[in-house]
Design a protein around this nucleic acid. Structure first.
Lengths: 218, 218
DNA sequence: TGTACATCAGTGAACGCGCGTTCACTGATGTAC
DNA sequence: TGTACATCAGTGAACGCGCGTTCACTGATGTAC
């Protein structure tokens, strides 16, 4: 850390020191508490201990701040997924298992980022930087899908893109219905991880990938 | 229709006639336009052509109105799913195919209801009526899962509840990522229906259900 | 090393706005007799 | 059939509140010489 004041602690003078960072943190905190809708520019300023006019030095408006949070989210998301996938090492099965877990862990561990990314109403289209970050995160899923698809028996190989979208939909479905930290989560007789793992096994078997290579012990 | 004034048209006197209904419609309209967060009690009143105090005669507050919208949503949802499933007639495969399409169609055709049900932040726990409606809708998926599970080869039969949750997660995942009417939808090189159908086929094959019984022609 | 100056980042007061909510009220409707 | 009355459903004015946003300002920081 090279900055002198990260926004959380200690006395400060007239200048905050790192207000931009502090505002993003405040937004995360508020989103985590009340969802992306229940977060206001003014409250973020208050949370950062600064006058309501100060944020305008750093963000044009509320939406720009929210888009920045989403951007940060996609980048962390990509990093987490890429780390888990690790190029498919040591084998596709193990790497794929890690990938799914990493997805759920991110959704559960960073509900504020996840909301900002997928439920914040941030328009992807108008923001090339954001779109690129989103695409890069998806690219990790796509890589995994390509490895999987390549191992499926020829003739029954769906396009890798489709497999990637399936993986995304399954994981997002489980994460948003059952795997969230907030109160929207529904009660479940098993963990989201178990549910996802079982689903992935069935799906992979359906792709023609053998149990021994992709089972729990594999 | 037995009521004299459904809230949409015509002159009315001092009494609205059917304000409760008109407010629910207004809420649907507003949610469809701006999401569940961007809808206010006052605006619903305005939309219904009534003073801002009038809604309090029918709903305790904004949340109660939103909960009513969600309740209506779950009931319509259940009806749509049950109609599509139709007891599994004429065969499980055809009925299951219809079920998935009906789900997507509902999410796409009634984005306001779908949002209120799954993204409105309406707490299910505190409202027994709402919870029951939600459970009844899920019960349709569960019935379908039981039929499917029963046709899977013994020994590789996952619990029907788990299969139902998988179906829900897959469909919800696709609906919320790709199958929505609003701008949160992401671009896709195929329709949500095609994506879902392919996914379901792979999943069912993974359950051990034969291609001939569950393929497109089956 | 010191000084003058430009730039930057935050202040605080002010504004208009729409919301949620309350209140005493009043027009309309239904019902008892 | 008519009248009196109770109940119901909506009015409209008012309130306090927090938000978004603007403005002239000022304290702090960096830089040229």
């Amino acid at each position: 850390m090279t900055w002198s004041n990260d926004g959380r602690d200690g006395p400060r003078g007239y200048h905050h020191g790192n207000l931009r960072e502090a505002l993003i943190r405040a937004a995360l905190e508020l989103i985590a508490q009340k969802g992306p809708a229940g977060f206001t520019f003014a409250e973020a300023a208050r949370w950062a201990g600064v006058s309501p006019a100060a944020p305008y030095r750093h963000f044009r408006d509320r939406d720009e701040l929210l888009a920045n949070v989403a951007l940060r989210g996609f980048r962390q998301f990509e990093a987490a997924l890429a780390k888990a996938w690790d190029g498919g090492r040591p084998d596709t099965s193990a790497a794929f298992d890690r990938l799914g877990r990493a997805y759920l862990e991110f959704a559960r561990g960073e509900p504020a980022l996840y909301s900002a990314m997928f439920e914040g109403g941030v328009p992807l289209g108008s923001n090339p930087e954001l779109r690129e970050a989103s695409d890069r995160a998806f690219a990790v899923l796509r890589q995994a899908a390509e490895k999987l698809s390549a191992q499926a028996p020829p003739g029954a190989r769906p396009p890798a893109l489709m497999v990637a979208l399936h993986i995304w939909a399954m994981t997002h479905g489980i994460a948003s219905l059952f795997g969230r930290g907030d109160s929207a989560r529904r009660a479940l007789p098993m963990s989201a991880e178990e549910l996802l793992e079982a689903q992935m096994l069935i799906y992979l078997r359906g792709l023609g990938l053998s149990e021994t290579k992709f089972g729990r012990s594999g």
